[in-house]
Each structure stands twice: as structure tokens, then as C-alpha cells.
């Protein structure tokens, strides 16, 4: 009888432990938002200011026809625990029409229009007059559910991407260029889950509505709950084991308790 109980408990504990998300396996691929029918189609125009920034969903490829020198704006939503990577490609005008090298730049701003740092990636690139395209990327920091007002940690909300030419010969400005932008988000798992929560994500009321797939979930769930519960179960089992080891046989079975 007792063996059965111990076995059951052991199985339960094992189940709890093995359903925990492994630290390495937590980062998953970007959600395949593009292609599904009910999603909004990828934007084919970019905005020209923070207020008119075109909304891109992770996994989509946004495109835009522009003139060299235009400031192109897109925005996307990033929720707590996500690491976003922005990639932009610019197809430059035919090289014989260009007279010199161009420098393109990608800037990312958060919902409060504060500039965001890139962990890595080339947010600025110079190409020679002969090049046909330029590629830029920016890997953003992990979005935190909460930060002190004095910190500039990335917070859940809208993120703005600005793509523009930072330096070019004056005669090359105004020429047509084709830009494409892709945003990928990866979940960083419970290891980066912080305490605290904003009352509302940093999405300005005067801008366009952005929301991650499935809505804002910031601070509602973390795999830390599973880890902690699993730890508790393991500790309980280890406690039972330790107790059984040291308690000994106890009162012999044939001796009545009130002897």
C-alpha cells in the first residue's frame, strides 16, 4: 500500500519536473503571422512620421516605395519577455544614376519615442555607388514588464522603426528606392521575467493601434511559476525520502500502541 503511494507521488513529481520548459528551449521562432487569412496583410507603404507609422506584425515583410531621403516609419508591438530583431533591406536605385556612396541608418524608438539601443546588428551601413542594395539590422534588448521611471529599459508597447539615408550626395536625394522591413520576436522565457507591471502598454493614444498577436499579456504568466511549483514538489518528495530513511522501523507492528 505504502509503496503504491510513494510510487504515485514519485510519478507526479517526475511529471511536474519534465513539463517544465527547459531554459534553452524557451526561445521559439517568430510567430508565422503572415499568410494566415484573418491577419492584416503586410503593409506596402511606410509612414512618414511617428503618428503615421505603418503597423508591421512580427513575421510579416513590409515593403515601401520611397525616395532616397524620405524618412520611413513603421511600428510593431513588443510584449514583456520578447526580444525583437528588426531587419531592413533597401534596394537602391540603379547604380549608374548614383554619383557617390550612401549611408543608410535604422533607428528604433520605444512608445515614448525614446531611442532604443541595439544589442548587435548593423544599424548603419555605408555602400559604394555601385552597390545594388543595403541591409541593416538591429537586435533590441529584452522587453521588461516594468522598469523604474528613470531607467530607459524597453517596456511593453509600440516600437517605432525609422529608416532613412543618413548621408548621400545631394544629387542622389529624391531618387526612387525600395525598402523592406521584417520584424522577428523571440520569447526569452522565464529567466528574464521581472516583477511589476505597467497599467497599460506604452502605446500613445494619438498613434495607430498596435497589439501583439493574442493581445497584451505582460506580467500575467511566467514559467517561473512552473519552476517554483516543480521545486516544491521535489522538495516534498525529498523530504518524505529523508524522513523514511532516518525514522527507522518505528513501533514494531506486533506491539499495540497503548501497551
Amino acid at each position: 500500500m505504502r509503496t503504491v503511494r510513494v510510487l504515485t507521488a514519485g510519478l507526479l513529481a517526475a511529471a511536474a519536473v519534465f513539463t517544465l520548459p527547459l531554459p534553452g528551449a524557451a526561445a521559439d521562432s517568430p510567430s508565422p503571422a503572415a499568410g494566415t487569412g484573418d491577419e492584416a496583410a503586410a503593409p506596402t507603404e511606410a509612414g512618414t512620421s511617428f503618428r503615421t507609422a505603418a503597423v508591421v506584425r512580427p513575421g510579416q515583410r513590409a515593403t515601401a516605395q520611397a525616395s532616397t531621403g524620405d524618412y520611413l516609419y513603421w511600428q510593431f508591438a513588443a510584449d514583456a519577455g520578447q526580444r525583437a530583431t528588426v531587419r531592413a533591406t533597401v534596394e537602391l536605385p540603379r547604380s549608374k544614376a548614383r554619383s557617390g556612396s550612401q549611408t543608410w541608418r535604422l533607428d528604433v524608438y520605444d512608445g515614448l519615442r525614446r531611442r532604443q539601443a541595439c544589442r548587435y546588428g548593423s544599424d548603419s551601413a555605408t555602400v559604394r555607388a555601385g552597390a545594388s542594395s543595403v541591409e541593416l539590422s538591429c537586435a533590441l534588448r529584452t522587453v521588461r514588464a516594468w522598469a523604474e521611471p528613470w531607467a530607459n529599459d524597453p517596456l511593453p508597447g509600440a516600437y517605432y522603426v525609422r529608416l532613412t539615408v543618413a548621408a548621400a550626395p545631394a544629387e542622389d536625394l529624391g531618387q526612387p528606392a525600395e525598402a523592406a522591413l521584417e520584424v522577428a520576436t523571440a520569447d526569452s522565457g522565464g529567466a528574464t521575467a521581472v516583477d511589476g507591471r505597467l497599467a497599460a502598454p506604452l502605446v500613445p493614444a494619438s498613434g495607430r493601434e498596435v497589439e501583439p498577436d493574442g493581445g497584451w499579456a505582460s506580467g500575467r504568466w511566467s514559467s517561473r511559476i512552473l519552476w517554483t511549483a516543480g521545486g516544491a514538489v521535489l522538495a516534498a518528495l525529498a523530504g518524505i525520502w529523508g524522513h523514511r530513511l532516518t525514522r527507522g522501523g518505528g513501533r514494531p507492528a506486533h506491539v499495540p500502541p497503548e501497551a
Binding site: V17, P23, A145, G190, A191, A193, V194, D195, G219, S222, S223, R224, I225, W227, T228, G230, G231, A232, L234, A235, A236, L237, A238, G239, I240, W241, G242, H243, R244, L245, T246
Partner: peptide, 25 residues
């Protein structure tokens, strides 16, 4: 610092098991 003060990782599980064993013993 952490999400609702909860723990995370294999060290947490190891420490829990050890402490549970010690308490049970």
C-alpha cells in the same frame, strides 16, 4: 527583482531537493 519573487532554474530545484531532504531526515 524576479517575477513575483518566484524562482527559476536547476539550482532552485537542487536546493529545494537538498533542503527538503535535510528537513525530512
Amino acid at each position: 527583482a524576479a517575477f513575483r519573487g518566484l524562482g527559476h532554474g536547476w539550482w532552485l530545484l537542487g536546493m529545494g531537493t537538498l533542503a527538503g531532504f535535510a528537513a525530512g531526515a
